[in-house]
């Protein structure tokens, strides 16, 4: 029910290849450009962080599987720029171009340190929590966005339809399932929920090991 990005628990990916601690932050110069271009474009305010995550998730599965990390970023950024009419397909194809009405919102070099060090907190005033630390909760099944078919959600498939225990309550946070789709921030109580690894994966998992996820209230029911 979710998309190709939702790969927690998947088989077949082979070993993880650690890198030396001192490896360069950006292996290629264009990786750095891609990251900076994405951040600077985001500051034009034409989309939310949740929408930009969704733009990467809804790359065609064949592209998602074969693109390198920053290729996904650039592809998603391009799709967002066109969808929001910040640029046009004709401009991408090399057609004539003109100064954008959004040029006044351009991220200026001297404001970068301030913008990066401020960040964008997602805690908001919201409804009172329905669950308390220690409560048993069951996660939504299937793991779908219940407002938008194929929409963004942060409940991974592997944790869907399982019972866990609330171990922390974080107040209300912006709800990605609405915020990714121009349906508003819709803040909801956010919890950390602990699941038994045995319960998620079966007897191959070590007894006592746990997996923790941060989950919004509407993903959860009392168990």
């Amino acid at each position: 029910m979710t998309r190709i990005h939702d790969m927690g628990g998947r088989f077949g990916d082979g070993p993880v290849t650690p890198e030396p601690e001192g490896a360069r932050v950006f292996a290629e110069a264009w990786h750095a450009r891609a990251l900076a271009l994405t951040l600077a474009s985001g500051s034009l305010g034409q989309w939310t962080l949740d929408r930009s995550r969704h733009a990467r998730e809804r790359l065609a599965p064949a592209d998602y599987a074969t693109f390198t990390y920053y290729e996904k970023w650039v592809a998603a950024l391009t799709d967002l720029l066109v969808e929001t009419e910040t640029i046009t397909r004709a401009e991408l194809e090399g057609g004539e171009t003109a100064l954008s009405p959004l040029a006044g919102k351009r991220l200026a070099s001297d404001t970068v340190p301030d913008v990066l060090s401020k960040g964008a907190p997602t805690d908001r005033r919201g409804p009172p929590p329905a669950f308390a630390v220690g409560d048993a909760v069951a996660t939504r099944r299937p793991p779908r966005n219940d407002r938008i078919t194929g929409g963004h959600t942060r409940l991974p498939a592997y944790a869907s339809g399982h019972i866990g225990n609330v171990i922390a309550s974080h107040g209300s946070h912006v709800f990605p399932d609405t915020n990714a789709h121009a349906l508003g921030e819709g803040p909801e109580p956010l919890y950390t929920v602990a699941f038994s690894a045995r319960d998620l994966w079966g007897p191959d998992a070590t007894q006592g090991d746990e997996v923790m996820l941060d989950l919004w209230q509407s993903y959860l029911k009392p168990a």
Partner: peptide, 12 residues
């Protein structure tokens, strides 16, 4: 299009 300042990218 005036949407990004390459110097801002350098700073990031």
């Amino acid at each position: 299009k005036g949407l990004i300042d390459p110097a801002a990218l350098d700073t990031i």
